[in-house]
């Protein structure tokens, strides 16, 4: 049985200053790394003799509009099916330079997840074989999950307060 401590120490030894901000919310080992080390770290965990983190559970984005220089985060959840051990890896990106290397070379399943992340957050995955919208209409010219839009369309006239009791 792998422990968070064991994996964290191993990653610290391998990646040194490039891995930081360790957390354990609900017991899930969470850490942050740099854009350059993200894919090497996924590969390291995948091919590691002991950890064998061979399943990409999820890949998604987050928008933090108020954190300057770190407006976007890409989050990888990887799972070692052998040890039933999970780890969450975050990478922060600046809005002005919203690029990150693709993980499709390692996980074929990253293909659609990266397209989804691009579709909703506009994060550009360099080297992705087919980076285009996957869920939204192709004509859409914005990234809807960015936290910069009002929840309701304020120009609508049919959804008036009186009808909604507010």
């Amino acid at each position: 049985m792998l422990t968070n401590q064991e994996v964290a120490e191993d990653l610290l030894k391998k990646f040194g200053d490039d891995v930081f901000d360790f957390e354990e919310p609900y017991g899930l080992l969470t850490l942050t790394t740099t854009r350059e080390q993200a894919i090497p770290m996924l590969e390291y965990l995948f091919h590691h003799e002991k950890f064998q983190a061979n399943f990409l559970t999820d890949l998604t984005g987050i928008h933090y509009p108020d954190s300057e220089g770190k407006e976007f985060a890409v989050v990888y959840h990887v799972h070692s099916l052998v040890h039933n051990f999970r780890v969450r890896i975050k990478v922060f990106l600046a809005e002005a330079d919203i690029h990150i290397p693709t993980a499709t070379g390692l996980y074929a399943s990253a293909n659609w997840m990266e397209r989804e992340t691009y579709d909703f957050f506009g994060i550009l995955f360099d080297g992705h074989p087919n980076l285009k919208r996957i869920l939204n209409i192709e004509e859409m010219d914005y990234f809807p999950m960015r936290r910069q839009y009002p929840l309701e369309d304020s120009t609508r006239e049919d959804k008036i307060d009186a009808l909604f009791g507010r």
Binding site: L135, N136, M140, P144, Y149, R156, D158, K159
Partner: peptide
């Protein structure tokens, strides 16, 4: 009829 509760971009 109207989009219902889904007052949404999609």
């Amino acid at each position: 009829s109207s989009g219902g509760i889904f007052d949404s971009y999609s």
